[in-house]
Design a protein around this nucleic acid. Structure first.
Length: 392
DNA sequence: TCTGGGGTCCTAGGACCC
DNA sequence: TCTGGGGTCCTAGGACCC
C-alpha cells in the first residue's frame, strides 16, 4: 500500500466517522415535538389503526422489529433489531410510530450536503452515517468536529456524534464513545487506554458468532485480543479473518475512504403476515412474487442497471433460509424476465415447510447505458415490460 | 413475547478450460 | 496403469453491517 520505499511516507490520515443520534426516532420527534422526553420506538409496518392519539407499544401484534428507539426507550432495554413483541414486554407504555422513509431520506441528504460544504471527501455508509477524510483540511480536529456538528444541526435540527482518528476502524469506535451529541478525538497512542477496555464486539466486523467463539477462548476485551497468540487466532478463525483480528486489535486499519462504488446487487424481499403454504397458498405467493419482480424491475430501470443473474431467497417457518441463483445468457431489467428466472429457480427448492419470507435479487449488475453502447445486437437487450397477461 | 429489509464480503466445491 | 496446476465462472450458504 503506502510502503513503497521510493515514495516519501504519506502524512498521517485524519478520518472522521459521523453518526446521527437515534436517527429515525429523532426525525420523528421533529414532526411530533410533544413526544420529546418520552420513550418512543420506531418500527412495524402499518400506521396505527384509527385510534385516538399515539399507539402504545403494548397494543402491537405482529412480526415487526424495532428500527430505532429514543434514548428514553433504550433505558428499558429496547434495542434496534429486537422483535416489537419483545420490546412491548420491556416497555409496554412506549409510543410506537411507523417508519416514514421519505422523511429520513430527505433529512439524510440534508446532513450529507451540509457536511460536504465543509469536507467533500465523504464515504456513504447508509442513511445515517458517513466517513469523512479530513486529512487535507488545515484546521485542528477539535475545531473541525465542532464545525461539522454545528453545520449538521443547522441543516437538520438534529445532533450527531463524531469520532476523529487516524483510520476508519478507530473513528467508528470513537464516535460511539460519547453518544449522543459527542465528539471524540483519538490517536494511536490512545488505543491501550481507550480501546483495549472495550468488549471485542465493539469492533465493526466482530459480530455475535465471533464474539461467542472469542469468549470461549477467554478473549472478552479488545486488550485480550491484542495480547492473543496470532497463531491461535489463525487456527481458530482461518488465516484471513485471524490476521484481521490481530491487526484491528492494535487499532490498525488502512482502508481508504471510498467516495463512489457501483452496486453489486439490488433486491426486494418481504416477510408475510402469516406463514404461507407452498401449495395451499399458491395464488397469494404467486401475486407476491409478481409484485416483487415488478418492484425490482422498477428499481433496476430507475438506477440504470441490468442483471446478469437472478436469485431467489426463501425463509421457512423455522427461520432456515435457502437461496437459488440463476445466471442469465443476456442481461435483463424487465419484470417478466425476472419472473421467469425466479420461477425456474423455485423449481429447484423442496417445499416441506411453510414459508415466512420470499425475496428476489438482481446480481452481476452492469450499467445499462454501457451495455447498450457495446451490445452485440441492440435488439436483444430486453426493455422494461408490463405484467399484463403474466399471471398463471 | 422470536427474529425487517437492504446490502457487502468471504468460503468452498465443482465445472470447465488451457 | 494412479493422478498437474492455474484461472475463472457458477452456485449455496453464512457472517456481518446499517
Amino acid at each position: 500500500m503506502s510502503s513503497d520505499p521510493a515514495l516519501p511516507p504519506s502524512p498521517p490520515r485524519r478520518i472522521a466517522h459521523l453518526d446521527m443520534d437515534a436517527f429515525f426516532a429523532s426525525v420523528e420527534l421533529l414532526e411530533h415535538p410533544e413526544l420529546r422526553g418520552l420513550p418512543v420506538v420506531i418500527g412495524g409496518r402499518r400506521a396505527a389503526p384509527g385510534a385516538e392519539g399515539h399507539q402504545r407499544l403494548k397494543t402491537y401484534a405482529g412480526r415487526g422489529v424495532v428500527t430505532t428507539a429514543t434514548y428514553e426507550a433504550r433505558v428499558f432495554g429496547v434495542r434496534s433489531g429486537m422483535g416489537l413483541m419483545k420490546a412491548a414486554a420491556l416497555a409496554p407504555e412506549a409510543i410506537l410510530l411507523p417508519t416514514h422513509h421519505e422523511a429520513y431520506g430527505r433529512v439524510s441528504r440534508a446532513f450529507k450536503a451540509a457536511v460536504a460544504e465543509i469536507a467533500p471527501a465523504i464515504e456513504d455508509r447508509g442513511i445515517d452515517e458517513i466517513y469523512i477524510d479530513l486529512t487535507d483540511l488545515p484546521e485542528a480536529s477539535h475545531d473541525l468536529g465542532l464545525r461539522l456538528k454545528a453545520a449538521v444541526k443547522q441543516a437538520t435540527g438534529l445532533t450527531c456524534s463524531i469520532g476523529i482518528t487516524p483510520n476508519k476502524l478507530l473513528s467508528k469506535m470513537a464516535s460511539e464513545l460519547q453518544k449522543p451529541d459527542g465528539l471524540t478525538i483519538l490517536g494511536l497512542e490512545d488505543v491501550p487506554t481507550r480501546i483495549w477496555p472495550l468488549p471485542c464486539s465493539a469492533i465493526n466486523g466482530i459480530g455475535p458468532k465471533a464474539t461467542v467463539k472469542l469468549e470461549a477462548l477467554g478473549i472478552r476485551r479488545i486488550g485480550d485480543l491484542a495480547k492473543a497468540d496470532p497463531e491461535l487466532l489463525n487456527a481458530q478463525f482461518g488465516p484471513r479473518y485471524g490476521a484481521w483480528l490481530s491487526e484491528v486489535a492494535q487499532g490498525h486499519d488502512e482502508r481508504p475512504i471510498t467516495i463512489f462504488r457501483e452496486p453489486k446487487s439490488i433486491s426486494r424481499e418481504t416477510t408475510f403476515e402469516r406463514d404461507l403454504h407452498a401449495r395451499q397458498d399458491r395464488e397469494i405467493l404467486s401475486r407476491i412474487l409478481i409484485d416483487l419482480c415488478e418492484r425490482l424491475a422498477q428499481d433496476l430501470v430507475r438506477k440504470g442497471y441490468l442483471a446478469r443473474s437472478v436469485g431467489i431467497k426463501l425463509r421457512f417457518e423455522d427461520f432456515s433460509t435457502v437461496t437459488r441463483d440463476h445466471a442469465l445468457a443476456l442481461p435483463v431489467a424487465d419484470g417478466a424476465a425476472l419472473l421467469e428466472a425466479a420461477r425456474s429457480s423455485l423449481k429447484r427448492v423442496t417445499f416441506d415447510r411453510k414459508l415466512r419470507l420470499l425475496g428476489i435479487r438482481a446480481g452481476s449488475l452492469i450499467r445499462a447505458d454501457e451495455y447498450r453502447a457495446h451490445a452485440p445486437d441492440p435488439a436483444q437487450v430486453s426493455e422494461p415490460g408490463l405484467f399484463e397477461g403474466l399471471e398463471g
